[in-house]
Every structure is written in C-alpha cells, then in structure tokens.
C-alpha cells in the first residue's frame, strides 16, 4: 500500500513530503542537510511565523509555503 506524497513549497522550491509529515521532523531533516541545528532558525508558514513550541504539532499540508530563515553576514 503506497501513500501519495504531497507537494509543498520550501524556500520557494517545490518539495515533496509524505502526508501527515510533522513540520518539526521535516525541519530537523532539512537543517541536517545544511549542517545546521534548529537553534536560532525561524520558520514561517503561509506568511505566519511558527513559534518553536508549535513546530511539533503542525502537520504539513499540500501547497503549504514554508520559509526556513536564519542569520547570515550582513552590514
């Protein structure tokens, strides 16, 4: 039995994830690929800032627009 993956937008790019995927698990995996930890990273979902305490109970839905933002050098 296969489940159909859903499409979401992450930092402007189409990405697929399994249905029922928790935002927190997705984020941890995404950041691990960048060699980062969730410390001082902020997530915006459909234009709303997602508080860290809500990451664990937010399930990703098809077409969600996720922005994963952090600090870089700047003047």
């Amino acid at each position: 039995m296969t489940t159909q993956n859903i499409e979401i937008y992450v930092n402007g790019e189409i990405t697929v994830c399994p249905p029922g995927q928790l935002l927190e698990a997705f984020l941890t995996d995404f950041l691990a690929r960048a060699g980062l930890t969730p410390d001082r990273v902020v997530v915006e979902i459909n234009g709303q800032i997602c508080k860290p305490e809500n990451l664990g109970n937010r399930i990703l839905n098809a077409k969600d627009q996720v922005e994963i933002i952090h600090f870089v050098g700047g003047g």
């Binding site: 930092n11 060699g35 410390d39 990273v41 050098g73 003047g75």
Partner: peptide, 18 residues
C-alpha cells in the same frame, strides 16, 4: 554588530553567523 536574514540555502550554507 549587524547581521542579515536569509533563507537557509542547502547548496551554499556557511552555517549560522551567530
């Protein structure tokens, strides 16, 4: 000290400047 905000870029991540 000033810092800027950008999307986490998987192809070019220098880590968190903080």
């Amino acid at each position: 000290i000033t810092i800027a905000l950008r999307r986490v870029d998987l192809s070019n991540s220098r880590g968190n400047v903080l």
